[in-house]
Simulated assay, not measured.
Amino acid sequence: MNTREQTEKIEQMTLSPIATHACDTAGRQYPEEEDDLRTAFSRDRDRIINCKAFRRLKRKTQVFLSPEGDHYRTRLTHTLEVAQIARTIARCLRFNEDLTEAISLGHDLGHTPFGHAGEHALDEICRVHPLEDGSTSFHHYEQSARIVERLEKNGRGLNLTEEVRDGILCHTKGTQAKTPEGRIVRVADRIAYINHDIDDSERAGILKESQLPPEITAVLGNSKRERIDCLVRSVVCCSADGVIRMDEPVQEAFDKLHAFMYKSVYVNPHAKSEESKVPLVIEKLYEYALSPEHLTADMRVIAQQDGIRRAAVDYIAGMTDPYAVELFEKIYVPHSWQLR
């Protein structure tokens, strides 16, 4: 019995009966030999950490566009916070931590530059200019799945297990993930972003923690630590059957907190003033990318196989915030020059 088989046996002995066991995976997109050290899900986690899209997350917006300061969240730090919360919940419920972590680390790989403003701008482009595959919308969770299935490794994808790909695709709105581990990531994502958005909003001078409504803090607590602890404990206490949920008073307070944040931060004119510039930048970059010679080598391959509009959207979606701004300036902003 090799190391992987020993780990799989330990999983069968220690995990919840309704947990997802690595030895029972539905498999990968195309067959490959098993590793003798790592389970299928731990291999997926390692592949995601080592892919290019994961490294780009460090320079992608979370909630505020290009903030000045080292302590604001990026899409990468958000991803790590989601993984930490999700693993805690999975460990307490005796679900598969490797699967939970892999989904967490991959869930936001498809986020665009400029956060949700960039996502909305690409969605509008797809609505007006349908892609060759018939798509008339753009959603970051679908792009995350496309990255791991199609775009990474020069068009070969990461060949992840079905459980990880399903969890990535279903981490937000719409259909719930097939596994309890995937469903954990969905709630962990929401717990993470709402609480760290409060922290970043206070750092930006947009919101003070003391402004949170008393009917919310009375249930969830008065600090980020207290709120996350309360939410995680509620999920753990109520979700042993694999239906990931909170008790009713906590869920109600959490929903009120989200509504408060939406009104106070997510549509706040001061916090979002720069986002009005995003559609123009994305539109101009799209027009530029419709010429194959302007694409990177790997995107030119995608253009040949999937169509130029699909490749242009993939190219822009993969950009970091600074790269998108620098490319826009290079193309459209006049630069000074000297006569010789």
Rank of each mutant, 00 (worst) to 15 (best):
E5D: 13
Q6M: 14
T7E: 11
T14W: 11
S16I: 11
A19F: 02
T25Q: 07
G27P: 08
R28H: 12
Q29H: 12
E33T: 12
E34N: 11
R38V: 12
T39D: 00
F41D: 09
R43I: 13
N50W: 03
K52Y: 12
K52S: 14
R55N: 03
K58A: 11
Q62C: 10
F64M: 11
E68M: 10
Y72R: 06
Q84P: 02
T88Q: 15
E97N: 07
I103V: 13
D108Q: 10
G110M: 07
H116G: 15
G118C: 05
A121P: 07
D123Y: 10
C126K: 09
R127V: 08
L131R: 11
G134Y: 00
E142A: 12
S144D: 06
A145G: 09
A145W: 13
N154F: 05
G155A: 02
L158S: 04
V164L: 01
R165L: 10
G167H: 00
L169M: 02
L169E: 06
T172R: 15
A177L: 00
G182T: 09
V187F: 06
A188W: 05
I191R: 10
A192S: 13
H196A: 00
D200H: 04
Q211V: 00
L212G: 08
P214W: 10
I216T: 01
L220N: 04
L220K: 05
S223D: 03
K224S: 13
R225D: 14
R227M: 07
C238I: 01
S239L: 09
A240G: 14
D241L: 07
G242D: 07
V243L: 13
M246S: 03
N268F: 06
V278E: 04
L280E: 13
V281Y: 08
V281T: 03
I282M: 04
K284V: 06
L285N: 01
A289F: 10
L290V: 08
S291A: 14
E293R: 14
R300I: 05
A303W: 08
D321S: 05
Y323L: 07
E326M: 13
L327H: 02
F328M: 03
